[in-house]
């Protein structure tokens, strides 16, 4: 369901489609499963294929920030499409240094 790459301790997950409350739980499980088996130094969430996101996506980002932190890793979010910049800015997640 989610494409992912793992190289040099960096886990990159390619998110896609519409991220809402309906899909958040499945995405969370898929990512946390990989975090816990791979224990990456860095988790990168790639948003280039995401067409829609509401505040459930913000909860997902903050939750993965914590989840990867628990195994000693850091979170980065990248390739944020223009239509998501407002919600990302409004959320304040940028102050966590994830960009």
């Amino acid at each position: 369901m989610l494409d992912a790459d793992y190289k040099n301790d960096v886990l990159t997950v390619f998110l896609n489609g519409e991220i809402d409350h309906d899909r958040a739980a499945d995405i969370r499980c898929a990512i946390d499963g990989r975090i816990n088996t791979l224990r990456p130094k860095k988790l990168e969430l790639d948003f280039s294929k995401v067409s829609f996101m509401d505040s459930s996506g913000i909860g997902l980002i903050m939750g993965r920030y914590r989840a990867v932190g628990l195994v000693g890793g850091v979170l980065k979010i990248k390739n944020i499409p223009d239509n998501l910049t407002r919600i990302i800015e409004l959320s304040g997640v940028t102050s966590l240094g994830v960009l």
Binding site: D54, S55, G59, S91
Partner: peptide
């Protein structure tokens, strides 16, 4: 605990 961000109303107000 369900990873709600508490930003739903803030998003509605801003958008």
């Amino acid at each position: 605990d369900e990873e709600r961000a508490g930003l739903g109303f803030a998003v509605m107000q801003s958008f």
